[in-house]
């Protein structure tokens, strides 16, 4: 997109205005949008008008976190530092709510409009964010269409009668409890989350002993990063392996699980498929 010169963009804009279609929205819409959060990166790439988005964060090109590595290759990358983002002369910055708060404050101080999108903690949050980003980009109709499609896709899963037990298990024994997007995906696809059963709200550490005793029917782990770490050794612990062998097929979360984007539907479909293979819970 670097090839687009401002003059050319003005021509495009003029053409759009001349076309007369939702002229007001286009005139109000930001023209130089920078996203500095993995999840807003992906929503913006999906929703923005051609040329509207000028940079995404470096995480968008990390295959372990991003579902849109190929698309992200077309955009200049930022590392979320205020200085770098400001020099891109954005008229809108999309950011998360947890990370880079100092950068966000600095950008606001410099007069840049920043829209912060909180991490999705439920399926309802996902649809809400699609609309929020669509609105911020002046692409209300596109955002609404994406959210409606997402809601329709998740509504087709029937209420499970006998849920099977499942647990997430990540490096350092980290798991997702109730009140998380991952937990809701499990519930939607006919599973009961061991993490939530253990009384956990949000993310937390579930000692390996307790996971082994709970004997979930399916354990969902994460893909290891390159290079070694002691944190990830727990994922190849013989005791965990034994429970996984008893459970049958092991599953791994991937980039589709990370953000509330339409790619999450792929993760949901995969879990529904895994549930269909399992025998009903005793």
């Amino acid at each position: 997109m670097r090839a687009f010169r401002p003059s050319f963009k003005r021509v495009v804009l003029a053409l759009a205005l001349w076309a007369g279609a939702n002229a007001a929205a286009v005139a109000d819409a930001p023209q130089r949008v920078v996203s500095m959060n993995l999840c807003t990166d992906q929503l913006a790439m999906l929703l923005a008008a051609p040329g509207q988005l000028i940079s995404v964060s470096h995480l968008a090109s990390d295959p372990l976190s991003s579902s849109m590595v190929d698309e992200a290759a077309a955009y200049p990358v930022n590392r979320g530092a205020a200085e770098q983002v400001f020099l891109m002369r954005p008229d809108l910055v999309l950011a998360g709510t947890y990370t880079a708060q100092a950068s966000v404050d600095l950008l606001r101080g410099l007069g840049v409009t920043v829209v912060q999108v909180p991490p999705a903690e439920s399926l309802a949050d996902v649809a809400r964010q699609m609309r929020q980003v669509g609105e911020a980009l002046g692409r209300v109709a596109e955002g609404e269409a994406m959210a409606a499609a997402f809601e329709a896709a998740t509504a087709q899963y029937p209420q499970a009668e006998a849920p099977a037990t499942a647990a997430f298990y990540y490096p350092n024994g980290y798991t997702a409890g109730s009140g998380t997007l991952a937990d809701e995906v499990l519930n939607l696809t006919g599973f009961r989350n061991i993490g939530a059963d253990a009384g956990m709200t949000g993310g937390g550490i579930l000692p390996l002993e307790r996971l082994v005793i709970a004997q979930p029917q399916i354990i969902i782990t994460s893909r290891p990063y390159p290079g070694a770490s002691r944190s990830e050794e727990i994922l190849v612990h013989p005791a965990l392996r034994a429970v996984q062998d008893a459970a049958g097929k092991a599953r791994m979360t991937d980039a589709d699980w990370v953000c509330g984007t339409p790619h999450l539907l792929r993760a949901i479909a995969a879990m529904a498929e895994a549930r269909a293979i399992l025998a009903p819970a005793p």
Binding site: Y225, A228, S231
Partner: peptide, 9 residues
Amino acid sequence: SPNPFAAME
């Protein structure tokens, strides 16, 4: 290390 957990260790 390319592994984000390594630095935490």
